[in-house]
Design a protein around this nucleic acid. Sequence first.
DNA 1: ACTTAGATTTCGCCG
DNA 2: CGGCGAAGTCTAAGT
Lengths: 227, 227
Amino acid sequence: MRLIVARCEVRYSGRLTAVLPEALRLLMIKSDGSVMVHADTGGFKPQNWMTPPTVIEEEGEPPVRIVVRKRAGASEDRLDIVIAEVVSDVVHDMGEAAALEKDGVERDLQEELAAAPHWCGEGFRLVRREWPTDIGPVDLMCRDADDAWVAVEIKRVATIDAVEQLTRYLERIRLDPAMGACRGVLAAQAIKPQARVLAESRGIACVEVELAVLRGEREPDLTLFAA
Amino acid sequence: MRLIVARCEVRYSGRLTAVLPEALRLLMIKSDGSVMVHADTGGFKPQNWMTPPTVIEEEGEPPVRIVVRKRAGASEDRLDIVIAEVVSDVVHDMGEAAALEKDGVERDLQEELAAAPHWCGEGFRLVRREWPTDIGPVDLMCRDADDAWVAVEIKRVATIDAVEQLTRYLERIRLDPAMGACRGVLAAQAIKPQARVLAESRGIACVEVELAVLRGEREPDLTLFAA
DNA sequence: ACTTAGATTTCGCCG
DNA sequence: CGGCGAAGTCTAAGT
């Protein structure tokens, strides 16, 4: 990884055009070809960047200009860095860093709900995870206490888009006469108010679940008030 | 901006939990409180991070542990960095860097189409930008050559979601008896094939536009074949 | 190669 | 401060 602190001006052209006036910034060049231009503020996001694969050209010693190119379909993405002053320019060999291990993403929520579908509705039994339709798989297909079909869509945060998605699935599923009465349930750690309104207006039930509760790490909030 | 190159292990807990095993990485600490953990690969995205506002605690000299905290609603986001070896630790004062000036985003497309709505359909005249409905504003509301209402949704890249969004708007708009026959037009720099199919199956017209053409920087491709 | 859906999405605007 | 829509979204997975 190469870290250059320099006074520079940056121009991007590609999907849009953008200009950064001359200022002191960090240029981060990773060994995979990524190039990022960071200011000292602005949080997480670089002011400008290019994702791999890239071709990097450099002029001067110390560098006075760095051009990063990328083939993107018919046109070209191009990052043009003009350097007025180099304050620091160092290279660190970092080797391979192990990947991030995450826990708590949607997939984990789906696993827990598949193992205990009663959290989605009383008496629910799992028929199949990733039930296929011709426009994509439904997260869970269950039968309820009356043996009726229920399609469950799982999100970490459910927005109006999740309701649209489940609605599309239900349209397809109900084309099968045997499943013409299939219900829908939206299960999520958090459900946005407008998503809830739209869902209920379409007869789709909403259930908020907590991963920690599903895992039995603690009792439902209900117990906080039980004493 | 502080740049630390160090062998370290990182644990995040908050919206989810995540672990990074010990390896050589770059720790970037911005003066606005942002903290990012970058590996030498993986492109644009840090392996782990925390956005401002944060509280940063540090132990040891050189540092052996850095804890970054954030209040996020009821619970706490926490980034725990345990440092085994510091290879480099430097601070650069970068002052204020000017913001990025972008051109070519959806907003720009909307401005051009508002100024020349005939690109959306023959004889179109603009009635209002950001026409309000109870579920959000429609990009453009126009009248066509026959004085009929037309709602225009503008995207840079139109996917199936754009069709759903315009469909929701049309549902609401048509509740008004005076606009019961309001048509829909999807205008975008690029329209995905599946979005086009869904749109046309719902009677929504599709128009692909080019920003450069709208600005008159060059003639439509048509002229390429006119000679 | 293209499309779809997730993300600790982040970011910005507007109420 | 919360909700919603855009993003050069990026990225991984499936087809």
